[in-house]
Design a protein around this nucleic acid. Structure first.
Lengths: 194, 194, 194, 194
DNA sequence: GATGAATGAGGGTTCATTCAT
DNA sequence: TATGAATGAACCCTCATTCAT
């Protein structure tokens, strides 16, 4: 009995996801330029040619890798339905971010490695919509509601601190006291209503 | 009659510096792997071969680029003669760091781009001695003297915040309110004796 | 539908042999260092890159070329099953050597050209096991059984004469009276039992 | 007092000879292609440019190296004034050859390394007159006078044996029993009148 | 005469990508 | 769909040679 169209699609999707996973790992641990298509194919136990059956170029594969990972990340940002951030939601958001940091360190390392490579960054920002702006707005609103005198500045500071923690952790995960830092972050930005 | 030894040295030193400058710029703006020796030579208006008259390999050139830039950076860290950090010195140190961030943004972008590229990081840390540990110790000592309850954690937090600011600034220098962030940083960590 | 594994193996084996053949010829006629991969590829009517699909490096290609040729050569040395050389076997061995000298002059020229190039010699002896020692032992034993007073010296002399004939022939195959030399060699070393 | 023209010539000649000596050594130990002009200049403690002041190319330097060494070699061949070889002269010739083999092993290794490199051989034979023919003639005459039935064949055989000994010795000078071989050679070819 | 900076052609090698099967 | 042989451009690097001083 021949496979149905849906079965084929499922196979395709699985294969695709597997390639993306392998690529993410290799990109993150060895760098984008040092990871050849041949290496990805070998690790995914498929042929080089097949990679091109799913992605039309190495660049497209990169984009899909980032897109795919970004999906996971943004899950933690869709906390509120009404667009208004509560303190409890901010806490969840921070919880989520720290959790992800540990779980998806591969992705974060990759993501940050791109942040400083203008060429790759350009490719990514051209292809992947950035949702961060909306999140920032919500946060500004939150700090305003908390009575902070300069909510925009506070938001930027908060973002910087969070980014700094992430960076330090990723560079040396073993030595970094992530939990301590989380506590300090919560103390600094979430003490408002208890 | 041949040129004197000094004349040759001068030529060599000039060329070397020129190549290092060009390489820093290109490495920072286009990435290490995307910058070919040919591109460097072209921008420096010399032949490819000449680069190898001054640097044994692309890797050595990278090391020299980083070494050279690191020299500038560490100038701001040698504030104290007695190894004890005063609040005024901490302020100078922060001043210096923010100043450098603006002046040497090329270098910082390069430096951070390496922080997430394991292979390049390995090359650098194998060849360039890191002084950061000593600085951290001084800072721990500083916070202890200020009566902070957990000076080690405070130091890590401070380092994270500073790194975060640097990262955010470098990624988008135009939009980032660097001065505001500096003020907040000083408020947070240097309020002790006025 | 993809080719079967066997089909691929066949293609690979053929190509590999083809490249080895071309390389042997060029190495022998123009020297190892004067033979570029580009030249080999051109003569084999393939692209430069393809050579590296079959051989990791030029050095590995060299090793395979010598290995491959050495196989042919050592066939003539596996005359005896019991490890004891009879006069008739010695004759066959000499016959075989002279035969090979004519048939595989390319290989011999290559082989001798390496004997005097320390760097290449080093590569070869590091990678290809030498069987000559065992052959020498058998010959020493043979001369001892023939009642020669100093069998070790006789063996070295025999080896030298044989080498000398080979060298002279290879340097100027046209003018060299190979058959006459063979007769003299047999007269000198194989007259024992008739 | 300015140097006389002769003094200049002497300096030039010395320099030239020194470069030739260094080149011979390096060519012999590392191979012609692996020896760069830079390496020669460095070992001779002069500049690269100066080498080109004395030799118009690397190829010319090679020729001069061989020419120069050939002079030494042919000294041992000019034994007789009357063109007729006596047994005592043959003995001296053999003595001389073995002596040279030990003294000038560098040159011999180089010479033999060229013997199998057609391209280099071509350069040499195009530029350096070969005297070997005349020597061969003398030897043929000698064997004829000794009553050997086929003097031409005997000469070729003699030359082959001598070459074989030289080759074996040069390839592994440490292990080779050169004196034993010499004795056997004399026994074989010089026993005629005692 | 003497220097070494400078060039440029060419060598070995890698790798994204294509394509016949 | 799946394979890996095959390509070719581009990469890093070496080196004989030239030339201004």
């Amino acid at each position: 009995m021949p496979k149905t169209e849906q079965q084929f699609k499922k196979i395709r999707d699985n294969r695709k996801e597997e390639i993306i996973d392998v690529a993410l790992q290799l990109f993150a641990t060895e760098g984008y330029h040092s990871t050849s298509i041949a290496k990805i194919a070998k690790k995914a136990e498929i042929s080089k040619g097949l990679v091109y059956n799913y992605f039309k170029s190495k660049e497209e594969l990169l984009i899909k890798v980032v897109e795919n990972a970004a999906k996971d990340v943004y899950k933690y940002f869709d906390l509120d339905n009404n667009g208004v951030l509560e303190t409890s939601e901010l806490k969840s958001f921070i919880d989520g971010t720290f959790h992800m940091l540990k779980e998806k360190i591969h992705f974060w390392r990759l993501y940050l490695s791109f942040a400083f490579n203008p060429q790759i960054l350009e490719v990514i920002s051209r292809n992947i919509p950035q949702k961060s702006e909306k999140i920032l707005e919500m946060m500004v609103d939150y700090f305003r509601r908390q009575g902070v005198s300069n909510p925009m500045t506070e938001t930027m500071y908060f973002a910087s601190v969070l980014k700094g923690i992430a960076v330090q952790y990723i560079v040396a995960p073993e030595q970094y006291p992530l939990e301590d830092m989380k506590k300090k972050l919560l103390d600094q930005f979430c003490y408002f209503n208890g």
